[in-house]
Amino acid sequence: MKTYIRLFFYGDIPGQETGSAPAPQGPKNDWPLWEVFIRSKQGLDHKHVGSLHATDAQMAIENARDVYTRRQEGVSIWVVKSQDIHASRPEESGELYDPAADKIYRHPTFYDLPDEINHM
């Protein structure tokens, strides 16, 4: 008997739109997973804070409001379906990230900054 094991990485959940393998059969009433991004105050970036389940975008925003902003953590919410996020694979990290390790000249640490310049 052959057993196929498919590896799914975080966020890379196959969906009908992506044309990849059929979604694994979860519990019948599972709601889709959404990733939540919160802006903590005006002028700052939206930061990933976690994920949650919801039936649609509107409900995802309200759930995010209830789950992630009840202690005044944010002033703006983004939600995106987890299946629409694609992630790099851990086993590719050698070719993707290691080459940068010996190229320290890419860091802006070789300049002499005048003392008057702060916040660099």
């Binding site: 949650l52 389940h53 309200e62 759930n63 789950v67 009840r70």
Partner: peptide, 11 residues
């Protein structure tokens, strides 16, 4: 019924 709504109604 689900964690998110549990928090919503508790709020």
């Amino acid at each position: 019924p689900v964690l998110e709504q549990d928090i919503a109604i508790s709020n």
